[in-house]
């Protein structure tokens, strides 16, 4: 499903890549950029977290023309003079102005690295509104954003994820150099599908899904070697033949209370014990309370 999300060309797409300190999602973001460029799309990057050279994708000259960086890294708050892009410019109007500066009139893919930077300086509601307006505006065909989800409260991450059509959460795999991606995808009809996949990203930024891990626990048991049969080399017999099994089934066990046994026990037999009670003269037998003599 991760590959479908990367290759999806539906308009109004909004993908959030969630990462954490343990596993960085930036390379996956670059793969999204690379895939969009290969589809002849125009890609605009709002780079706040890292510098342009750290987010470059290997591309030919045609791609390079369609890739447009907006440097929000050098001076995002305007502390130095003449900032190229500040985080305060994160509003639908300003972003539209930035996008219209490029020569390509085609609808663009907007890449945001990262939403965490923006969320630090704008209230979550403003960020959500801005993203929603960008999607509806028509100038932006799709948005791909990176979000460091461990830096924000769960509610904020949740409300952003409600806007997204696809959420990819990356986490380190237990072993090997893979990364686990948990993809949640929401279709227009409102159906939600989820899948967990192991993937690696090659040097040319193409994503290869290694295997699907529906249940991480199950995968571990599958990989275990078949255990040696402990009953293989015994000096005695542990197994029963058919005849032996039949004989065993026929045998009634001493504690099983069958019908014959019950009737045999209830019928008075000759020589069986009998209780004879002869009331003594001193016996004070009370009909109404037979247990009167017991100390209860």
């Amino acid at each position: 499903m991760l590959l479908d999300v990367i290759q999806c060309v539906e308009s109004g797409r909004f993908v959030i890549i969630q990462d954490s300190v343990q596993c960085c999602g930036r390379q996956l973001l670059q793969s999204f950029m690379c895939a969009a460029l290969k589809r002849e799309e125009v890609v605009h990057v709002l780079a706040f977290d890292v510098a342009e050279e750290d987010l470059r994708v290997p591309s030919d000259s045609g791609c390079a023309q369609r890739l447009c960086f907006h440097d929000g890294y050098t001076d995002p708050l305007g502390w130095n003079d003449s900032p190229p892009l500040t985080v305060l410019q994160f509003s639908p109007g300003e972003i539209h102005a930035l996008l219209s500066r490029s020569e390509h009139p085609k609808p663009v893919t907007l890449v945001i690295d990262s939403l965490s930077w923006v969320l630090r300086h704008h209230p979550p509601a403003v960020v959500c509104q801005c993203l929603q307006e960008l999607r509806r505006g028509g100038a932006v065909r799709s948005i791909v954003a990176l979000l460091h989800s461990d830096l924000h409260q769960q509610g904020i991450v949740g409300s952003l994820c409600h806007l997204a059509t696809a959420i990819v959460t990356v986490a380190p795999a237990l072993r090997g150099h893979h990364t686990v991606a948990k993809t949640t995808r929401r279709t227009r009809s409102g159906r939600v599908t989820q899948e967990e996949e192991c993937f690696i990203i090659k040097e040319d930024l193409t994503v290869t899904v290694q295997k699907q891990t529906h249940h991480p626990g199950q995968r571990d048991t599958e990989q275990e070697e078949p255990q040696a049969d402990p009953a293989a080399h015994l000096t005695f017999n542990l197994r029963l033949s058919e005849a032996e099994k039949e004989a065993k089934d026929k045998l009634s066990l001493p504690f099983v209370f069958s019908q014959e046994k019950k009737s045999a026990l209830l019928q008075p037999r000759p020589g069986a014990g009998q209780i004879i009670y002869e009331p003594d003269a001193n016996d004070d037998f009370d009909q109404e309370d037979p247990d009167d003599d017991l100390d209860v």
């Binding site: 343990q22 596993c23 960085c24 930036r26 750290d54 380190p172 150099h177 990203i201």
Partner: peptide, 13 residues
């Protein structure tokens, strides 16, 4: 080591 700073280039830290 995170990102490109790793002695052996890899995706993860």
């Amino acid at each position: 080591w995170r990102g490109g700073a790793a002695p052996t280039a890899g995706f993860q830290q």
